[in-house]
Write a protein that binds this DNA or RNA. Structure first.
Length: 270
DNA sequence: AACATTCGCAACCGCCTGGGT
DNA sequence: GACCCAGGCGGTTGCGAATGT
């Protein structure tokens, strides 16, 4: 056993891109015999690669059922949602996206989605800054400012499928609760506590991650640490009709509302 | 056209974990 | 319990293509 492994190490192992011939050898072998022990695959398949490389090539490229097309908006929304919940757990995220590999998702995150999130975070920072500087609550007087900021976020307005004007001039959910967009509380909502109807938890990303049982990202709380359901929460909402996670997101309006104004069903997204 | 920069993606590297001895 | 090994995972790198100057 040891001699065999030692011999293997002495074998010159190829690195770099896979040739079509190597792909064919690996595909033929795994299809016919299964991979079993990956370390044995290159030996049996006649490849000068190590087992890890074969495994990676199979999982990320040769495995049947892989999607070769670009990520759909829905897939991106799912990634954003799950990343908000799980962090960089790419393998877990990939389990919710059939035909996508963890490597593919990771690459897409680093090359595109992360930038979109950072843009949104910049918007959020400006909101907080505005509220702090003015020493007042974020009210609708800020909405025009928010809209101007949102224009700096790359966003195709045609992606919006509903008319937001019906809420833009509304005083808040106290009077127009049924017309509110579905607001999805993400990083800052503990489902466990919320199920107890006790409070809306605004943890601003510092709470125990295990509390995050779901994490659709479609709203931001701008006040801090409120745990009282009677409190008014300043929330920046973005919304659309069909797609809950327009990417990049658009900030449409700032609401003041009470947690008690919402039905639980309006807050949950599984 | 030539060069520089950015982007997207495939693959590698190193670490961790679990099973076997 | 210590050690070895394979598998799995996330971070990072390298390179060709695309884009900008």
């Amino acid at each position: 056993m040891r001699c065999k492994q030692s011999d293997n190490r002495k074998m010159k192992q190829k690195k770099g891109l896979w040739s079509p011939d190597e792909d064919q050898k690996l595909r033929d072998y795994v299809v016919n015999y299964g991979h079993g022990s990956w370390s044995a695959v290159p030996i049996n398949a006649g490849l000068q690669r190590n087992g890890k490389s074969c495994r990676l090539r199979w999982i990320n490229y040769l495995r049947p059922g892989l999607k070769k097309c670009a990520f759909s908006m829905q897939e991106e929304e799912t990634i954003l949602t799950l990343h908000g919940l799980l962090g960089n757990k790419w393998s877990l995220i990939s389990q919710h996206l059939s035909g996508r590999t963890d490597n593919e998702i990771k690459n897409h995150w680093h090359s595109y989605l992360k930038k979109q999130v950072q843009k949104l975070e910049n918007v959020e920072a400006k909101i907080k800054s505005e509220c702090t500087n003015s020493n007042t609550r974020c009210t609708e007087s800020s909405s025009s400012y928010m809209n101007s900021i949102s224009q700096n976020v790359s966003f195709d307005s045609s992606e919006l499928t509903n008319d937001s004007s019906n809420v833009t001039n509304q005083p808040g959910p106290h009077t127009q609760i049924n017309k509110l967009p579905k607001i999805l509380f993400a990083d800052w909502l503990s489902l466990e506590e919320f199920n107890g109807h006790e409070s809306l938890v605004c943890n601003n990303g510092v709470s125990n991650e295990s509390n995050y049982q779901y994490a659709p990202v479609n709203g931001m709380v701008s006040n801090e640490g409120s745990t009282d359901s009677s409190d008014t929460v300043n929330c920046v909402c973005n919304y659309s009709d069909e797609d809950m996670f327009q990417t990049p997101m658009k900030v449409d309006q700032i609401f003041n509302f009470s947690v008690a104004d919402f039905n639980i069903e309006d807050l949950l997204y599984i």
